[in-house]
């Protein structure tokens, strides 16, 4: 593969740094994700994985560096809602769904469409196609739960519902933060399968601790350490990398 340039990437970070109270959470980080690519980001605690997601989604502003979406949109100038509308979806580490709404309503609120309070107040109520909801629910394996309150779902089901909400947004890029934390082995395997399915039509960035799960994904891996990239390559290549071994096992 040729080296990534600005124009053929869906996400491009160059020389990004951010400091919190003197602590450099992200230090000269550069990363490029190609359209349609699935990428796993791994790294020990405090490596800056979640902060990186915060920067991409507009929650945190970098002190320096460039963040571009689709080769031309400068994300550092936009806020969360604008970035979400551009087509970047984010799944939180802890499953975050609307507990007092039904599973179907959770998806309904996430479906791409007008987002202003006035369209929500006066817009037609039943226009949104139920078929889209059905399709997404079957992708995330929640069809028989569509009428239940999200609060009543199991932990794993909430994780899937949140992934379903991301799909409903129809984003170009999905950022998925530790999707299998707290899942059973069967659920973990199912989730790997689900993400691979999603990656056929979307670019996906997965942040994860679980090495077995990352191996299941079978994609290119980036190792973060102390806020910058330590190694990049296939899972076998990075797990053989001496510096990676040192960071993970050495101390």
């Amino acid at each position: 593969m040729t080296s990534p340039t600005l124009t053929n990437t869906v996400l491009y970070l160059d020389g990004v740094s951010v400091t919190f109270d003197g602590f450099r959470a992200i230090n000269n980080l550069s990363l490029a994700i190609a359209p349609g690519e699935m990428r796993a980001i791994i790294g020990p605690n405090g490596a800056g994985k979640t902060t990186m997601m915060d920067i991409i989604t507009g929650k945190t502003r970098p002190d320096e560096g460039e963040v571009f979406f689709g080769g031309m949109i400068d994300l550092t100038m936009l806020d969360e809602a604008e970035i979400a509308t551009l087509g970047i979806g984010r799944k939180f580490q802890k499953p975050t769904v609307f507990e007092s709404h039904t599973v179907a309503d959770n998806i309904r609120l996430a479906l791409a469409g007008a987002r202003s309070p006035f369209s929500a107040l006066f817009g037609a109520r039943n226009r949104i196609a139920g078929e889209r909801i059905d399709a997404i629910l079957s992708t995330v394996r929640l069809t028989e739960h569509r009428g239940r309150l999200a609060a009543d779902l199991s932990h794993g089901q909430k994780q899937w519902l949140e992934i379903g909400m991301l799909l409903a947004q129809d984003p170009k890029l999905l950022l998925v933060d530790e999707p299998v934390a707290g899942m059973t082995d069967a659920e973990t395997a199912e989730t790997a399968h689900l993400l691979k399915e999603i990656a056929r039509e979307h670019s996906v960035v997965v942040v994860e601790h679980d090495m077995a799960f990352v191996r299941d994904l079978g994609c290119k891996v980036t190792v973060l350490h102390e806020g910058s990239v330590l190694a990049e390559g296939s899972i076998d290549a990075v797990s053989a990398n001496e510096r990676v071994i040192e960071v993970y096992l050495g101390r």
């Binding site: 989604t57 809602a81 979806g89 939180f92 769904v97 007092s100 609120l109 107040l121 109520r125 949140e162």
Partner: peptide
Amino acid sequence: STYGKVLVAIRDAESRTRFLGYRV
């Protein structure tokens, strides 16, 4: 209305609502 559903969504998970593209 849908507006009310978004209000409840904000009550339950404000940042989730924001990352779905709603101007909370």
